[in-house]
Simulated assay, not measured.
Amino acid sequence: MMDKGTEPRIRQPAVAGMFYPDDADALRSMVRDYLAEASAPTGEPPKAIIAPHAGLPYSGPVAATAYRTVAPLKETVRRVVLLGPSHRVPFRGLAAPDAEQLRTPLGDIPVDTDALAEIAELPDVGMLDAAHAAEHSLEVQLPFLQEVLGDFRIVPLVVGDADPDTVAAVLERLWGGPETLIVISSDLSHFHDYATANRIDEATAQAIATLHPERVDHEGACGFHPVRGLLTSARNHGLTGEVLDRRNSGDTAGPRDQVVGYGAFAFHEPEPAHG
């Protein structure tokens, strides 16, 4: 909790102006355009999603497909548990930032510091600002979350080397009810030719949709550690997985000789039994 008169500790954006526009109006317009172009959801809103985290011209159209399914939860979700892989800092476990707010050009998002305190006692959970300082995997998700949810608190965790059970234990502690949405940030395969990428990404997408964490590896998804943890938790909670969209940079904004794969996935809780 902040003392009156003290400035909040803010995690400043690291990739604004590179991965997405640093101008609020341009960013808001881009995100809204992607959401408007995304396929309309057909089922109930999800408990969890997986969305990609490249520069928005590349992965934004695919990410928007996941976030459009979340839009109906605007009045329900009050906390987002956001996990993404570490691209720059090697470490073991899961890392929280020493920040009270996360900033984007669209405004500041309050960090759920109570939730972070709740998981601090778990094995391999610690505070490591260096893991967050230049990391894009969480940051690229924030403008979408701000646009579709509006007012919420966030639990931002960068995931290093962590086994599925370690990640699942954290998710279990934070699972909550309808007020909590879980978001995993991950791209799929990297730097294969278009045909090879499609083959690898299709296999990974099916493993994710059918909740088989053991079939998701570093070749298939850069965020395989948090993805495996979510799939483990999803199994435990009886969720069902769904592939919403699967494309790559050769489909969206780049050449096809070396592509990065992107997937959007949703995970739904079972329908309540009626006695």
Rank of each mutant, 00 (worst) to 15 (best):
F91S: 11
K74P: 00
P90R: 14
R88Y: 14
V148F: 00
E139Q: 12
G60T: 05
V140Y: 03
E75Y: 01
P41V: 12
V70K: 09
E139S: 11
D129M: 13
A66P: 00
D23H: 04
L35I: 03
F144D: 08
I119M: 12
T42I: 12
P97Y: 08
Y58I: 11
D108G: 05
Q146S: 04
P72C: 08
G43T: 09
L56N: 09
V62E: 03
D98K: 03
A130I: 10
E100Q: 15
L102Y: 13
A51S: 14
G60V: 05
L122A: 06
A131C: 04
I109E: 08
L102S: 08
D98F: 00
T113F: 02
I119Y: 07
P41S: 08
A40C: 02
G55M: 09
P61A: 11
R92H: 12
H53L: 14
L27D: 03
L56D: 06
G60R: 05
P45N: 04
D25W: 01
A95L: 12
V31F: 09
V111T: 03
A24E: 06
E118Q: 14
A64V: 04
E147G: 01
R32I: 00
P61W: 02
D112R: 11
E147A: 06
R92K: 14
P46S: 07
A40N: 10
Y58V: 11
L83Q: 01
V111S: 06
L73R: 11
A38V: 08
Q101A: 15
E44N: 08
T42Q: 14
L83T: 01
L56K: 07
A63R: 10
A48K: 03
P72F: 05
V89W: 04
T42G: 13
E139V: 09
I50A: 09
G107P: 04
P90G: 13
R78H: 14
I50Q: 06
L116N: 03
A99E: 13
T42D: 12
A26R: 15
P110C: 12
E37Q: 15
L145Y: 07
P52Y: 11
V31K: 07
E100H: 11
G60N: 10
L102F: 12
M127W: 04
D33S: 14
Y20T: 08
Y20V: 10
V111R: 09
V125C: 13
Y67H: 03
P85T: 06
V31S: 10
E75C: 04
H53F: 13
A40M: 10
T104E: 09
S39K: 13
D33K: 14
M30Q: 15
A95I: 11
D98E: 15
A36R: 14
P110V: 10
G107Y: 02
A71N: 03
P57N: 07
E100W: 05
A115G: 02
E75D: 15
A96Y: 04
L83C: 02
P72D: 08
V148H: 00
D22F: 01
I49M: 03
V125Q: 10
P90I: 11
E135C: 10
A64P: 01
A24F: 01
T42E: 15
T65F: 00
E118Y: 00
V80D: 10
L142M: 15
S59V: 07
P41N: 05
P45I: 05
T42H: 13
R92N: 11
E139R: 13
A26W: 00
Q101F: 14
R78Q: 15
H136N: 12
K74W: 13
H87R: 12
P72A: 07
A63M: 10
L27Y: 01
G17R: 09
P90D: 09
A38E: 07
F144V: 08
